[in-house]
Amino acid sequence: MIRLVLVSAALMLLLAVTVVAAHLPLGPAKPWIAYGIAFAKATLILWFFMEMRSEGATARLAMVAAGVWLLMMLTLTAADYLTRSWIGG
């Protein structure tokens, strides 16, 4: 129980960091910092609230599969956006 309260507090802290980072002049690094904070939040939720820390190999494999699929979607979508300008649009 104490662990969950601590994790909740950590999530709130990360939320505060998100809000502060959004208002700082961080230039092009700003979205990457936001992605990093979001990744940290998701990891905490998966590990503690979704109880991945105590799950077996199959459930963890399912979690990894979901992550890999998300990565596939983002990577191939980015392959479009990042290469559009290569031949002048």
Partner: peptide
């Protein structure tokens, strides 16, 4: 649709 030709070749 306007997708990058490189992405299209890969797909």
């Amino acid at each position: 649709s306007g997708q990058s030709i490189y992405a299209s070749a890969f797909f």
